[in-house]
Nucleic acid binder design. Structure first.
Length: 227
DNA sequence: AAACATCGCAACCGCCCCCAA
DNA sequence: GTTGGGGGCGGTTGCGATGTT
């Protein structure tokens, strides 16, 4: 039986206080990251090591970019999700200053609903045949800031000229196929010098390469990647 | 103005992988 | 080759903020 990572009776939970943040920042500035299990005691924090790690990585790290996602970032998330699935850490790794948690939250709260609303299954990035879809509805009509509702079950909203172009990818019906598969004309341009550099991680390199191969071979939808 | 609904995000939980012993 | 600890990841939850009725 594995020991719990920390004594739950002794650890604080919930929102972090400014004092706790300061202690964590100060400790990491002087000692560096790592040894998360022993860090809380050394830093004088009554927190689980995992909690400290999460707080640092998702919130306190100085290189974190906060605020709204830019249009190109959103585009890239969609493209990478089509390629990698829910591998948020890999996706976040291609978005400088963004964390996996942030990307995951943004996907679940914005992008996923947006895709559903226009009749695209966010799981496989294919047109969902069960959902009604307006004629000639293009992904270019997706909105970001002007969403008035996020309820996917509501009727599709009529888009206006003022609506922001969200995905500069074309959504095309497959000419010679009866399946309504989605072709995304994708341009992986943000911080990706080469598609193969997606998988240049250190520790999990082998795994990531495997993931890439799997993605290429099986569930990848009709996704066209252009360099 | 109050009650209720919805959204967005920080944080937690539990599982899995890696690696050293 | 096996085992156990540490770290990382993805899914889920909780709660404050905001919007709607």
């Amino acid at each position: 039986m594995r020991k719990p990572c920390c004594d739950k009776k002794e650890t604080h939970k919930g929102a972090w206080t400014k004092q706790e943040d300061q202690k964590l920042i100060h400790y990491i500035h002087t000692h560096g990251e790592g040894s998360w299990r022993t860090l809380p005691m050394a830093a004088g924090l009554h927190r689980c090591g995992k909690s400290c790690r999460l707080r640092w990585i998702n919130y306190l790290r100085p290189d974190i970019k906060r605020g709204n996602f830019a249009q190109d970032e959103e585009d890239l998330i969609i493209k990478l999700h089509a390629l990698l699935g829910n591998r948020w850490s890999l996706i976040a790794g291609r978005l400088p200053g963004r964390t996996d948690n942030e990307v995951k939250n943004y996907w679940n709260s914005h992008i996923k609903r947006k895709l559903i609303r226009i009749g695209i299954d966010p799981n496989n990035h294919r047109l969902n045949q069960t959902l009604p879809r307006p004629q000639n509805q293009s992904m270019s009509n997706l909105t970001t800031s002007s969403e008035s509702t996020n309820d996917a079950s509501k009727p599709l909203k009529a888009f206006t000229d003022n609506d922001r172009v969200s995905v500069n990818a074309s959504c095309l019906e497959d000419d010679n196929s009866s399946s309504n598969e989605l072709n995304l004309n994708l341009d992986l341009t943000i911080a990706i010098p080469c598609a193969f550099s997606l998988f240049e991680g250190k520790k999990g390199q082998e795994k990531e390469l495997k993931v890439a191969k799997e993605s290429e071979s099986d569930q990848l939808p009709t996704l066209l990647l252009f360099r």
